[in-house]
């Protein structure tokens, strides 16, 4: 599904102070994988995320998405891929302020030619169990709820891939489990999930862990038995 070949990203070429964020990275992510990309800050994981999400182009190397080389895409085609194939989730949620959860979820649909915008948005809200908060604005929702709205927004166009950049970075432990259990469920239903994190804890809940260090893949292993976020959530609920 995703294949990176010799991907290199160098910043600051013009200023002369070159920083190599990624060095000759090779990586294959299969359809249905749940990948956690782990690394310390400055390791190159954010660059990885930007390149995977097509927000940035590599300096060198090839990126195949469903067997098509991404460099051959024009700007408008990239916008279409970001709209239809990839769903983004951000650390800071990036919901529009003073705008209802429903309208926030509708946003990607505005840029596609889908019909039944309201119906699709409501369906996506149901998947994150927030259909009863549809008319609430972000400041009326908790952090966890806001991130769930953001996930609904990522889901609404039914993309193959969910790309989440530190999705739990701003959340408390209970909300983190809630969000993670949603990702695990989505993965079970067939979605490919790529999650960027610096927390080992989170990575243990993914099926595959890729560790990045100094712009290179230092480790790449599969968790035979990833921790179940929904099970842990039950325990938290019981304790409360």
């Amino acid at each position: 599904m995703i294949q990176l070949k010799n991907i290199t990203k160098v910043y600051g070429k013009d200023s002369g102070q070159e920083v190599t964020a990624l060095k000759d990275v090779d990586l294959i992510i299969e359809k249905g994988d749940f990948v956690a990309i782990v690394g310390a800050s400055g390791s190159g994981k954010s660059t990885m995320m930007n390149i995977l999400g097509m927000l940035d182009r590599p300096t060198k190397g090839e990126y195949y998405l469903e067997n098509r080389e991404v460099n051959s895409y024009k700007d408008d085609e990239l916008a279409k891929v970001r709209n239809k194939t990839i769903g983004f989730v951000f650390q800071k949620f990036h919901l529009l302020p003073k705008t209802s959860a429903m309208e926030n979820v509708e946003l990607p649909l505005i840029y596609s030619d889908r019909k039944n915008i309201k119906g699709l948005a409501l369906e996506a809200l149901k998947k994150v169990k927030l259909e009863d908060r549809a008319s609430h604005t972000p400041n009326e929702l908790s952090g966890g709820q806001q991130q769930r709205v953001a996930i609904a927004r990522a889901l609404v166009n039914e993309p193959e891939i969910i790309l989440a950049d530190e999705p739990t970075g701003n959340l408390d432990s209970k909300s983190t489990l809630e969000v993670m259990s949603i990702f695990q469920e989505l993965n079970k239903s067939g979605k490919t999930i790529i999650l960027i994190t610096h927390e080992q804890d989170i990575a243990e809940q993914a099926g595959r862990v890729i560790k990045i260090q100094d712009g290179k893949i230092a480790e790449d292993y599969r968790n035979e038995n990833p921790r179940s976020a929904s099970e842990e959530l039950k325990l938290v609920d019981v304790n409360e």
């Binding site: 999400g53 927000l55 700007d75 408008d76 916008a79 279409k80 970001r82 709209n83 239809k84 983004f88 951000f90 990036h94 529009l96 946003l107 990607p108 840029y111 596609s112 927004r153 166009n157």
Partner: peptide
């Protein structure tokens, strides 16, 4: 955000 979720220029 809009650019990253599929808005064209």
């Amino acid at each position: 955000l809009r650019l990253s979720i599929g808005a064209r220029k």
